[in-house]
Nucleic acid binder design. Sequence first.
DNA 1: CGAGGACCCTGCAAGC
DNA 2: TGCTTGCAGGGTCCTC
Length: 263
Amino acid sequence: MPELPEIETIVRELTPALAGRLIHDVEFLSRLVLLDSAQAAIDFLRGRRMASLIRRGKFIVCRLDRGFLTFHLGMTGKLLLASGKGPYTRAVFALDSGNLRFDDIRQFGRIEWGECVPARVERLGADPLSISASEFIRQIRRHSGHIKPLLLNQTFLAGLGNIYTDEVLHKAGIHPRTRAMRLGRERCVRLHRAIVEVLSLAIEHRGSSISDYVDASGRQGSFQLLHQVYGKPGQPCPRCGTPIRRIVIAQRGTCFCPACQKY
DNA sequence: CGAGGACCCTGCAAGC
DNA sequence: TGCTTGCAGGGTCCTC
């Protein structure tokens, strides 16, 4: 499931390969990958040049010579610098040099295009690696709900998904069902630091390859080897040895240590 | 307006 | 062995 570190890895790798490339042609192999008609997308994209690539939360935004092309990988999406087609290829971009392929098994991924950046990208909250500790604390205290769903809320903070939220809360020693408002200043600071540390380390390891994540060259990340709680129910907590528990919060499987993560 | 639940999608694992 | 069921979870949308 690509989250911020995986998307960052992909963007860093795609940038030198795609900057300046001309889109000769586009083919869409699934209607689900687009929000509207394929023909309109093809007419818009054909002949445009890719200028630059940035990550916004879990979105990949490509600035064109005019307009924008935006990718969201959903759960199983992949952007590959590869030619040919696989059984789950949903779109192929033929460039003046090479191909860009969008593969997606479960089809939660989307490709958007237009003169402007999509509205749902504009609505995203702050980037977890850029927000200051003081601003983070100010924002946290405005919410009465549980901390885990808040961290997953992309209009609050853009980029954390289920894996990194569990890892971050474990590192900060915070129970996922703690009420955001009830976190004291010191624990908010610890949470902010845990977010920066976990995400930075994950980026260094080129992301986590859970299920089938690979980068734009088809290579796996290695951060899954450093996971402390995610996907490890029943195993001993690396910090205190207590068995990791799994509960469901906001429809998401949640792994945490019942001993060292406190309310 | 914020919080929480249903839903979309498909491969895979578990259970009968 | 072979079928059915449920789970995984990104995001959106709806209701309370």
